[in-house]
Design a protein around this nucleic acid. Structure first.
Lengths: 242, 242
DNA sequence: CGCGAGCTTGATGCCGATCAATGCATGTGG
DNA sequence: CCACATGCATTGATCGGCATCAAGCTCGCG
């Protein structure tokens, strides 16, 4: 069943989007980005809690997060779930669906969000014309693969403290790239969702937050996190369990 | 430093390669596959234990395994390592290097192997001409992303028994697609490498093999594995820890 | 034949899961 | 405006699976 595409009353334009340095247009010339405008003509709004797409939905478009925040969730046969990623503005959703022409995971909005719809067939045609678009797209996919390998390393070898530290540093870096603070953030996801992403239970996530707070590395107030000792946090990641 | 490319005395041709249904040419017309022959002109031999490329090497080509067996390894700052994948004939190596134009992991031959060299610049140009090549390449990358997400699910939620069961079923399926037995295989990797891939210690891998043997599900003789009860093995995977 | 890499098996300990209770913020209806 | 419900987070007590440490074992190979 096709997920309905809701047309917004006004046009989107990559060429005038302030996310173009964080999104697909990265590395493309202004003239080429204008060609992208033909392609990315539609937006869609997703209220908090709703799915952008679900595992098994037919794949016919990629999505770029414009505003808001998403998680992607993979479900196993027996019902267990794993959060495979959190996506913020400028990041692409749906890359894992190309291979089977079906979406491979659920994408759920963690807050009211808007996305740009990138019809995949058209992306293929256009990247056929624009070498730089092709190149940019390949880089996006490749970086996703490299990111996933990093997560596998984390899940395979790191202790709870290190997992959480790496997660927070990654999150705050991406937020900083989007103009927010380097040391403070408001988490969009629950402890349970963090735990699912990191291969931990929510109680462990909560305890680890408390421990990092006791050590004076973080200040934790619900979902408001302030990093007091960024160096100590980085040390946790780079020194592993020593 | 560039890894030297050794030219083989005779030409490689995708169009006459018996791996074309498992490799990049999947889904391309015979005429188009012939165009690939221009591109994939070189082979390289890698003796067992040697690296095809290493983390940080400049990226300028992808590699398709022709014969043999590889592992890819990601190293953390503190020296810990994680095997991120095992690759057999027809599978591509180096996809995670496109994004940074540097190889993101080590690729090591687990037995004497040969690979086809796919110069990346030329792959970009040619896939610019051949829509079906572009499409096939996107699918390969997308499937790698989906595979990685599956591994993340395994690492995040599964117990040792289930991890090993899923690993063995995946391996035997891929070997079967290459004409080998559905129930028997010879492992190319050590217990330690399996453990690294699955986020377990080698002792746990060994114990789990023994347990599955005691249960009559497997017959284990060193690296020779026979699956006696495929259904029981599948049940371990789909029912999780219940 | 003896060496060494890789594998198996046992004993013990620890990290994180599990079970359980309480706390805290937000929202809703009487 | 307060009582109560609900969802999320924190904290404690206990348990269990896997890691760790430590011997032996097997097999291929010089």
């Amino acid at each position: 069943m096709l997920t309905p595409i809701r047309l917004e009353p006004f046009k989107v334009a990559c060429s005038s989007c302030n996310l173009r340095e964080l999104c697909l247009p990265l590395g493309m010339s202004p003239a080429q980005v204008e060609r992208l405008d033909e392609l990315v003509a539609n937006r869609r709004s997703i209220p908090r809690g709703d799915a952008l797409f679900r595992q098994g939905d037919p794949f016919d478009a990629l999505y770029a997060v414009r505003t808001g925040f998403f998680k992607t969730v993979l479900a196993a046969a027996d019902g267990r779930e794993q959060v495979t990623g959190f996506q913020m503005s400028g990041e692409l959703l749906g890359l894992d669906g190309i291979g089977q022409s079906l979406h491979a995971c659920d994408a759920l909005a963690l807050e009211d969000s808007t996305v740009c719809v990138i019809p995949y067939e058209q992306l293929e045609s256009l990247s056929h014309e624009l070498v730089d678009l092709q190149r940019a797209f390949h880089k996006v996919m490749s970086r996703e693969i490299a990111r996933d390998h990093g997560v596998m390393l984390l899940l395979g070898t790191a202790r709870a403290e290190e997992r959480l530290a790496a997660f927070l540093l990654n999150l705050v870096r991406r937020l900083h790239e989007r103009g927010q603070s380097m040391s403070e953030m408001i988490l969009r996801m629950t402890r349970e969702e963090i735990g699912s992403y990191l291969g931990l239970k929510l109680e462990t996530v909560s305890r680890t937050f408390s421990k990092l707070q006791d050590q004076g590395i973080l200040e934790v107030r619900q979902r408001q996190i302030r990093i007091l000792e960024p160096e100590a946090l980085k040390r946790l990641v780079s020194e592993g369990s020593c």
